[in-house]
């Protein structure tokens, strides 16, 4: 099959995210919650326009792919996720990039898994 010429390819953005929670959550559950939240907030039409997809997810960090002009809506979708399979979570967008490599290198590489319990003693 011939490749699509670059001008016809869908333009995308990649959001580097981290999941802040007390217990680790599984990738499949994050995906399910992502699509249910998008369906609830934007509806079927809005979700399809976003072209959402969760790429790599490991150690509470991941990359979400979306359409280049829908990053605002995708942020709102991620913000309205409150729990993943019973575990309360915050999904925090660390940054947005035009390539997977950019998102991974710039925002995810070297970032430690954040755990509020461990961090809290520093402030007390």
């Amino acid at each position: 099959m011939k490749l699509l010429p670059p001008t016809l390819r869908a333009r995308t953005r990649y959001l580097a995210i981290e999941v802040i929670s007390q217990d680790p959550v599984r990738r499949e559950d994050v995906i399910r919650e992502l699509f249910s939240s998008a369906g609830s907030l934007l509806g079927d039409v809005g979700s399809s326009e976003c072209a959402l997809r969760l790429l790599a997810y490991e150690d509470s960090k991941g990359v979400v792919r979306c359409s280049h002009d829908r990053t605002g809506n995708v942020r709102a979708v991620l913000a309205s996720i409150t729990e993943v399979k019973g575990t309360k979570v915050i999904i925090h967008v660390l940054g947005v990039s035009g390539t997977v490599m950019g998102a991974t290198k710039k925002y995810l590489a070297g970032v430690d898994v954040f755990n509020p319990k461990e961090q809290s003693h520093i402030n007390e």
Binding site: A76, I90, P116
Partner: peptide, 17 residues
């Protein structure tokens, strides 16, 4: 509780809705 906090950019995109 801390689970309810959201980052400022996310708050702004919710407000954009």
């Amino acid at each position: 509780s801390w689970f309810d906090l959201r980052a400022p950019r996310e708050i702004a995109s919710l407000a954009a809705l």
